[in-house]
Computed example of a mutant assay.
Amino acid sequence: MKSQLLEREGFAALVLRLRREGVTDLDLLTAVEQTPRSSFVSSEYSSSAYSSRTVPLACGQFIEGADLAVRLLSILQVKPGHRVLEIGTGSGFMTAVLGRLAERVISIDRYRSLIGDAQKRLEALGLRNVILRQADGANGLPGEGTFDRIIATTAFPAMPRFFAEQLVSGGMLLAPLMVEEERCVMVRLTKTGSRFEREDLFEVPFLPLQTKLALYL
């Protein structure tokens, strides 16, 4: 009972903060509410599950703050019928929320143990439209057709080229880009026909992509 109360209080506080940021999408907030965030962090960090701070995960990784996670999902504007590619499964929280919004989600991560943990969480939530795979994500996911939305939570050293072939016309890519040695900016690319519109959004704390590492993990 106490854990459920903390979950409700944490979610309510998150919604208040998000509304101040202009995030009011009811479908998105409902999907977040149906995805208990404390289930995606270890018990020692459960009190911080809904905070704006990053929370440590296994393999030296972290789950982004709740505010940033939902803010990114709001920008992505996922709708029913969309196919989504997520690069960087992490805890699986954003993956699960995407699974409640989209028709199909494929999520990849370089760490086998993170994929395994996330799979258990998704199964516990009864999400059957999400596929998890171990891969580094440097080339997106060749051979799986095109996606309406692509979101990455691992930072690229330069704008990735795969999006040109893996994104549908009218699709959107949201990815962190290293613009300086220790400065990372979230970038939005929107595809119209063969043209792309780029918008640099705000700084984010994501870690740089390490290519081919998944082969050894």
Rank of each mutant, 00 (worst) to 15 (best):
G116Y: 08
D27V: 09
E182V: 11
S91Q: 04
L207N: 12
R71K: 14
A102K: 13
G145M: 09
L217R: 10
F147R: 08
L132V: 12
R8T: 04
F206K: 03
S42M: 03
S46T: 03
R17F: 07
F196L: 10
P160N: 13
L141Q: 01
L76A: 13
D67T: 10
M1F: 11
E181K: 10
Q77V: 06
R183C: 08
A175H: 11
V185C: 06
F40I: 00
K79M: 06
R110T: 15
R112I: 12
L16S: 11
V179K: 11
E144H: 12
A214Q: 06
R161P: 13
F62L: 03
G126P: 02
L209F: 14
R19C: 03
A175R: 03
A118S: 03
M178L: 07
F147C: 15
D148G: 15
S48A: 11
A102H: 12
R104L: 07
L98P: 03
E180R: 12
G137T: 08
V187G: 02
C184W: 04
S169H: 08
I131H: 15
I108Y: 03
I131G: 10
G116L: 11
G145K: 14
R195H: 14
T24Q: 15
F162N: 09
S169L: 15
R19Y: 03
L209T: 06
L167R: 14
R19K: 10
E103G: 09
A135D: 09
T146L: 10
H82M: 05
V179N: 04
V168W: 11
Q4N: 15
V187E: 02
Y216V: 09
P208Q: 05
A66W: 00
M172A: 13
R17D: 15
E123D: 03
F162R: 09
V179D: 11
D67N: 11
A214R: 12
A13L: 15
L28T: 13
V55S: 00
F206M: 07
S38G: 01
R195E: 08
G60D: 05
V130E: 02
R161N: 14
L114M: 04
G65A: 05
E64T: 13
A49N: 00
E123R: 04
Y50P: 01
K79V: 14
E21A: 11
V97K: 01
S47K: 08
S39Y: 04
Q119T: 14
S113T: 08
E165A: 14
G193K: 05
P80N: 14
V41A: 00
P56A: 02
S51H: 01
A135R: 12
D200I: 13
P56S: 01
